[in-house]
Design a protein around this nucleic acid. Structure first.
Lengths: 230, 230
DNA sequence: ACAAAAGTGTTGCCCTTACACCCATGC
DNA sequence: GCATGGGTGTAAGGGCAACACTTTTGT
């Protein structure tokens, strides 16, 4: 058998990107889904995504699809996994590079269905509608990654609005990790990381007002440093 | 712009797999490289790998390429990252799904150059020859992953022969992590994990004989459990 | 005044780290 | 007998988990 060469005329796969975009609103961890207009899986909900253009970096393709289908830009994205199992797309040989993204509750409000996509909507990740392709599996994997990142990076803040209370932050952790946390220990841990600071403002609700915090520039630098690779 | 569809005649990329296969022999952490016979980069060393066949699972493609180019089977493999930057292959649009693998010193001895590839050789990962494509970057990333796995999984054993001394194991850790470790603390830590057991044999060398250990079935189960996803 | 969430410290335990000497063998 | 790597224990410090009450506000 001759050594493979790019110039041969062997079949090539279609390559897509799919994005699992998380946010946290109304006390729920939610994923962005787009309702499919066309077969296969017309009417089903699916992850935003689409075909990669020639000579387009993969992450750029993910960012472009998010902008086209949901009208959002400047999102935190990282590569999740590449799915290439035969049969994952009934149309033929399609390899999908899945991305994982986080968007703040503030930004999530700007999401609108794009021109060339169906309706866009945010769904509770623990209560999803039937999904197209292998997208449920992709979301499960992304959720695992999100948990893991929350456990030992400072990434939780990307899910929240710019200023937030410690109780809100704790709720995010509890819902993502699906476990109850001790209030005092949680506060100690987060404060000792030096990644948040008081804004000086208070949030007034039904009861005792709560201090508002924001993430420090340092937290953002830390996360960038962690991403120096690849 | 119409929504993308598989049936359209847009260009498709070639998709390859590249495998970063590590082993540990003669006191060095080594990577398997194949010398290229053809342009581009003829004469350069490169990662084993090649084109994915139609409807072939990606990991199966990686395993097949390792067998074709190096004659080894049954290797531990996991997906590393997908590289798709424009210009990474001078022949055109090529997306590569990189895999990360570990092979024991025992198995590494069976490696031979495959029929359709150039010479195969093991290279010290800290002293690599000039590499084709972006393969140096891929190896750097794989090395980061290897370190990270060693720090909190029991995967180091895959690099060693079936039975080994604690000093050998410590050397592996020291060379992979590039840091000197305390002998007593290292032993305490490894033994407390319950992942190795004495074989009852001793290794006789120049000096005081050393107990030989093997990894327990439990260690292997632990690692499988960790891989339940995706 | 009361309901509800905000906020606050201490203790015990475990795990990690630092550290130095004797042992068994080959030559 | 000596050179060489093999093998062993302990103490101090830091980080993590468990745990309950007071404060502040809105109604």
């Amino acid at each position: 058998m001759p050594r493979s060469s790019v110039s041969r005329d062997y079949p090539k796969p279609s390559v897509t990107v799919d994005i699992v975009l998380f946010t946290f609103t109304e006390g729920e961890l939610r994923v962005l889904l787009i309702q499919r207009k066309r077969e296969p899986f017309a009417g089903y909900w699916a992850l935003p995504g689409g075909f990669v253009n020639e000579n387009e970096p993969l992450e750029a393709a993910a960012a472009r699809e998010l902008e086209e289908e949901a009208g959002v830009r400047g999102i935190y994205l990282e590569q999740l996994y590449t799915f290439g199992d035969p049969g994952r797309d009934p149309r033929g040989w399609v390899i999908s590079v899945a991305y994982f993204g986080i968007i703040s509750a503030d930004q999530a409000r700007d999401v609108r269905a794009g021109d060339d996509a169906g309706d866009a909507g945010w769904f509770n990740v623990y209560d999803l509608p039937p999904l197209a392709f292998d997208h449920e599996r992709i979301i499960r994997y992304a959720l695992q990654r999100l948990r893991y990142k929350l456990e030992y990076t400072a990434l939780g803040f990307l899910l929240l609005p710019e200023s937030f209370t410690l109780s809100q932050l704790q709720t995010v952790y509890e819902i993502v990790l699906r476990e109850k946390l001790d209030k005092r220990n949680f506060r100690k841990k987060i404060l000792s990381m030096n990644i948040i600071e008081e804004t000086g403002q208070m949030r007034h609700g039904d009861h005792r007002p709560a201090k508002l915090y924001r993430f420090t520039a340092r937290a953002i630098e830390l996360e960038k440093a962690r991403r120096r690779f690849p």
